[in-house]
């Protein structure tokens, strides 16, 4: 039951996208998100869709996995869509009581929905093709310059990777505790809110106890191996850019330039003409 959660779960496959340096994927995703918010016009929209579909195809991750991430934000998407639909001023095309839909509103709603969909799928591509460890490694290296202004980049990324590492462990633990209590007749599903909240106590107490115990053990194990933070620490698998990473950078840059160009074209030629 609980082990089916896939938000940000790594999907193992042998593809060029999986092999890319995590820094490329981080920056690439960031640039893609930026491109989603600067694009204008149908051509740019098609380009963004084609780019995303191409990356998914190359990554060999089944499309159904990408869509799973969307389920979590369905409500957010509906609310965003409705707000855009009803609250955008402009030429009216439909009206009932206090509700009115404008042409601009409809356009905005559709655009916003696609933007959100692309955004979620785009970031899912990154998390599905990169292990959490690679991701924090990439982040650490990308943010390394911040060390100069006394931001403890290594410590932050270490905390991040430990936190990420513990999510599946704690999920599994929750599952086991739930089962152990259900075997003693616990009921987590029925009853009103207060009853349900009370039913959580037998679940939360062992979970917290175990989380603290694990944290303690981990701290001990790190100390026993003389861990002392970032200063002078080397990596077993240091990140080095390879040819494919430069190629990926070029492709992403070309894509972003194309999107900017399309926006300029749209603003100077299509909008004044309309």
């Amino acid at each position: 039951m609980l082990r089916d959660i896939t938000l940000g779960q790594y999907y193992p496959a042998d593809s060029p996208i999986h092999k890319l340096d995590p820094r490329v994927k981080l920056l690439g995703t960031l640039l893609y998100i930026i491109s989603l918010f600067i694009f204008k016009g149908y051509v740019a929209f098609v380009l963004a869709a084609v780019f995303l579909i191409a990356v998914i195809k190359i990554s060999k991750v089944p499309f159904s996995y990408m869509v799973k991430g969307l389920k979590a934000i369905v409500i957010l998407m509906i609310i965003t869509g409705l707000f855009n639909l009803f609250l955008t001023p402009g030429t009216e095309i439909w009206r009932w009581w206090i509700f009115r839909i404008t042409k601009e509103g409809a356009q905005n709603a559709v655009l916003m929905l696609f933007r959100l969909t692309f955004l979620i799928i785009g970031t899912s591509v990154m998390t599905l093709t990169t292990t959490p460890n690679q991701l924090t490694d990439g982040l650490e290296k990308s943010l390394h310059p911040l060390n100069k202004i006394h931001i403890p980049v290594h410590e932050i990324s270490m905390m991040m990777s430990i936190a990420l590492r513990f999510i599946p462990i704690l999920i599994e633990e929750t599952d086991k505790i739930m089962k152990a209590q259900m075997a003693r007749g616990a009921d987590f599903e029925n009853g009103n809110l207060i009853k349900k909240a009370k039913a959580m106590i037998p679940l939360l107490v062992p979970l917290f106890v175990s989380a603290f115990r694990r944290a303690n053990d981990l701290a001990m194990a790190m100390e026993a191996r003389c861990y002392r933070g970032g200063e002078g620490r080397t990596k077993m698998k240091p990140l080095h850019y390879q040819k494919r990473d430069y190629i990926a950078y070029v492709i992403v840059s070309l894509y972003l330039i194309a999107m900017i160009a399309l926006r300029i074209v749209w603003n100077t030629f299509v909008v004044p003409a309309a």
């Binding site: 633990e173 086991k176 505790i177 089962k179 152990a180 209590q181 075997a183 003693r184 007749g185 616990a186 009921d187 106590i201 037998p202 107490v205 062992p206 106890v209 175990s210 115990r213």
Partner: peptide, 26 residues
């Protein structure tokens, strides 16, 4: 009745006696 391998997964009450009462109370 099923007793799992790790007792840490089910002990939660403040006293042992209350913890054993949890099943019958349910």
């Amino acid at each position: 009745g099923l007793v799992f391998q790790y007792p840490e997964h089910q002990l939660f009450e403040t006293t042992i006696f209350d913890d054993v009462c949890y099943g019958p109370m349910n």
